[in-house]
Design a protein around this nucleic acid. Structure first.
Length: 256
DNA sequence: AACTTGCGCAACCGCCAGTCG
DNA sequence: GCGACTGGCGGTTGCGCAAGT
């Protein structure tokens, strides 16, 4: 008889994560850093197993995750790496730091596998999709990051309206203040129990996200092109933008 | 309009390796 | 050395949604 799995324990919640759970997890990781996942459910009260918390963080909430369509370059890179490494998704993901191994695995299984088998059937003499000489070239391709506007913002498990209600309700019912910052073209920020940090150039909200203060929106858009956001970050940013009546597509500094 | 099918993807499952007492 | 435990990984499942009939 094997030992029971952590997720088999009574009272452990399964299924899609709610925005409140995400906020709790993000706040905790921001405060304590990723790792020691066993302590996360204990210290946060989340009714999730440690494994589920880790997975949610690494595959979804971790800062810098790029979502949405894969570029032709990324696609070629995955094909090339898969042919060299096999189904070592974590290893492949290390060459695409903005993508998770889960995303790459899903993309391979749903798109590339079919595409490749089709191509092989049609023409076995095709040129390789990409030819890289070494890992440095793979890690530093001369391909620009696609603009933020191309990224999907609809991948959250719940609707934006529900998230909005839940998060705002959670914020206020927790007794924390909603802070509005008036500075230049500035932003509303939510303070979720962790100290709101403000400086002359930026404000941090939810203890996790940092909005830079800017006078011109063009610069923000330019920065945004190089700062992919998690879906939660995108939503929080949208919320801040909606409240402050400034254009969408701003950038957030990474957590670390 | 109602139903079916296929797709995309978040999340789960089970195994393995590493660590620690 | 051994067992318990944790984190990481790859395979798989199941749900929601869009497209097709």
């Amino acid at each position: 008889m094997g030992r029971s799995l952590c997720c088999d324990k009574v009272g452990i919640k399964k299924g899609p994560w709610t925005p409140e759970e995400d906020i709790v997890l993000v706040s905790y990781v921001q405060k304590h850093g990723p790792g020691n996942w066993r302590s996360v459910p204990v210290n946060t009260g989340l009714m999730r197993c440690s494994k589920s918390c880790r997975l949610r963080w690494t595959n979804y909430l971790r800062p810098g995750i790029k979502r949405g369509n894969f570029t032709p370059h990324e696609e070629g890179l995955i094909v090339h790496l898969q042919s060299m490494l096999g189904n070592k998704w974590a290893a492949i993901a290390s060459y695409l730091p903005q993508r998770t191994d889960n995303d790459i695995k899903n993309y391979w299984n749903t798109h590339l596998k079919k595409k490749i088998s089709k191509n092989q059937a049609e023409d076995v003499c095709h040129e390789p999709v990409l030819r890289y000489c070494n890992t440095d070239q793979i890690r530093n391709p001369d391909v620009s990051t696609p603009p933020m506007s191309n990224l999907s913002s609809t991948t959250y498990a719940s609707s934006a309206e529900n998230i909005s209600r839940l998060l705002i309700g959670w914020t206020r019912s927790s007794g924390n203040q909603v802070v509005k910052v008036d500075q230049g073209s500035c932003h509303s920020v939510f303070n979720q129990g962790l100290p709101l940090q403000e400086s002359s150039s930026e404000a941090t909200f939810c203890g996790a996200l940092t909005l830079p203060f800017h006078d011109d929106h063009e610069n923000l858009r330019l920065e945004a092109e190089h700062q992919p956001l998690t879906v939660l970050e995108n939503w929080l940013l949208d919320e801040a933008v909606a409240q402050a009546d400034i254009p969408a597509g701003l950038c957030l500094d990474g957590m670390y």
